[in-house]
Nucleic acid binder design. Structure first.
Lengths: 211, 211
DNA sequence: CATGGCGGTTAGCGAGCGTTAACCTGACGG
DNA sequence: CCGTCAGGTTAACGCTCGCTAACCGCCATG
């Protein structure tokens, strides 16, 4: 196998491509998304990166720790990315609707390009140990609330509870990408992204309409 | 399926409420939805209906068979219900849009009232043995195609591939109910149903808009 | 009143799981 | 040139799992 990579002369830097840890996380997310957390064995994960079984414990405390790191990473990226987009829109003096559109566009990029992670994000939360689960749930809640606030900035008449339901519904809509496109690459990524974008905004607008 | 159920002369066939089989299926669906198929043991399922472990094998061939029966049942109900609603709308001479609305309304009823089943329906398919999986996938595909045809009846300009993506997206939107309302009963079922209904139709309309 | 079988019970098996232990190797800094 | 140590290996442990075996009580029926 590849013993050592052609990295620079420094003491030890990540091997240019992906570090072992990152390799493992990537393969683990693929396998967890495909077969479920309990449906994947540690030997299987090891085999996917060319090492076998217990060697994983040189990089992670256990199987749970891999799932925890994946879910915390996803939730953090989503929340931080969302906060940044909203903040940028605000600083640029753009209208509230621009912030909402930025949230939608960012989520779509994520849902299309990191399909496995999005799958884990709303499927495997309950497989976490209680402490980590609380932490991830908190991050997810913050992300949802960011959307709710932004949405209500565009449609102030929308009641909070209703807005929250609408946000969850749109998440479901956007995350449907995991069901499309069997292999890995979308037939036409941009077209799919635009379709979802428009459907999401239309759904929001309708949710806010007075009846 | 089952050899001897209520049948003729027996004084005491179905225990008035749910048969043992139905009890087991109900509890199994709850547990599978909560912890995932691999995350639930047969002892746990047995305990949930007041019997213990191996007694389940008097009613089912195995754990796989329970999941199979649940998923086949769900997929069949969805497809048959959808076909019936579309047929009824056609016989009544209603416009194509009425058929689409009937599909949406029917799916929402299902998604709200049988939340656990909807969860299994799009999460646990890959845990089935290959034969059963093919069978369920076929039923699901027929249901999707029914929606696609109906949608294209309303918006003939919509390309089939695009329509299919839109249908999957709306399924994701409607199935988001499983994420709402932690305990069991929705705060206001009718209001939620109407909100989802309108959002779904608006998303469809936007998907069909020419750009 | 014997009987048959439905629907339970407990014991236990064999496989697979996550994890630990003990050991090895090759690269690198002093 | 040697010691350290990161990052592998295989063996094995203990536990849990799905499932089978063996047994049994109840109750409707002939």
């Amino acid at each position: 196998m590849s013993a050592h990579e052609p990295s620079g002369s420094s003491t030890f830097s990540p091997p240019a491509g992906l570090s072992r840890r990152e390799q493992i996380l990537r393969e683990a997310s693929r396998l967890f998304a495909a077969h479920g957390f309990h449906g994947v064995g540690v030997d299987e994960i090891g085999a996917a990166v060319g090492i076998s079984g217990p060697a994983l414990y040189r990089h992670f405390a256990g199987k749970d720790a891999m799932l925890t790191e994946l879910l915390v990473g996803i939730s953090t990226r989503l929340r931080d990315g969302g906060q940044q987009r909203v903040a940028e829109a605000a600083e640029a003096g753009e209208p509230a609707s621009a912030a909402l559109e930025a949230l939608v566009a960012g989520h779509i990029d994520f849902a299309i390009d990191d399909r496995d992670l999005i799958t884990l994000h709303d499927r495997e939360l309950d497989r976490l140990p209680a402490d980590d689960r609380r932490r991830v749930r908190q991050l997810q809640r913050q992300y949802v609330e960011l959307w709710v606030e932004t949405l209500r900035g565009v449609h102030p008449s929308l009641a909070p509870e209703r807005a929250r339901a609408a946000v969850h519904a749109v998440f479901g809509l956007l995350n449907s990408t995991r069901r499309l496109s069997r292999p890995n690459a979308l037939p036409d990524r941009e077209e799919t992204a635009q379709l979802l974008h428009r459907m999401a905004l239309a759904a929001f607008t309708e949710a806010a309409r007075q009846d």
